[in-house]
């Protein structure tokens, strides 16, 4: 299922364009895509550009993609109470609230609004402890979701 659905999503991104502030940087296979994400308008992240990596397996979209912020020479993970410094994101829609009707673009928009509504730039309280022992794939982390409004 995954390849055919991703083909359709890719075509839509290319034909209709990505949502405002989102850009497809790499989408040349059906294993991993990279999209840049900027928060438009006034926010703590004004002028910042981040990159999201989506990794898909054959279960997509029945199972969620693995989504992380890219951390390399060019990109950093945004400083946000739900984003760990290794790029892992604590967001319910990427875990227990995933739905197969969600798309790459819908996930980007959700994360964009998560950043837009942020009131304090800070790491999660358990950042160092988590990052030290985090699995490579954040889908293997058992997240506890504390609040809905950050």
């Amino acid at each position: 299922m995954s390849t055919r659905r991703l083909q359709k999503e890719l075509l839509e991104l290319k034909n209709e364009g990505a949502p405002a502030g989102i850009q497809l940087l790499k989408g040349d296979d059906f294993q991993s895509w990279i999209l840049s994400i900027e928060v438009l308008g006034e926010s703590l992240y004004k002028g910042d550009k981040f990159a999201l990596e989506f990794r898909f397996d054959s279960q997509y979209p029945i199972a969620p993609p693995s989504v992380t912020f890219v951390v390399n020479e060019q990109f950093q993970a945004p400083e946000h109470p739900h984003v760990y410094s290794n790029g892992h994101i604590c967001a319910s829609i990427l875990a227990n609230e995933w739905s197969p009707v969600l798309t790459v673009s819908a996930v980007c928009i959700t994360l964009q609004s998560m950043l837009a509504s942020c009131k304090r730039k800070e790491r999660p309280p358990d950042n160092d402890r988590y990052v030290a022992r985090a699995p490579a794939d954040p889908r293997r982390t058992r997240w506890a979701f504390h609040d809905d409004d950050v």
């Binding site: 055919r4 979209p61 197969p100 009707v101």
Partner: peptide
Amino acid sequence: GDVCGICRV
């Protein structure tokens, strides 16, 4: 509106 929301076909 006329596609399956899961597979988009």
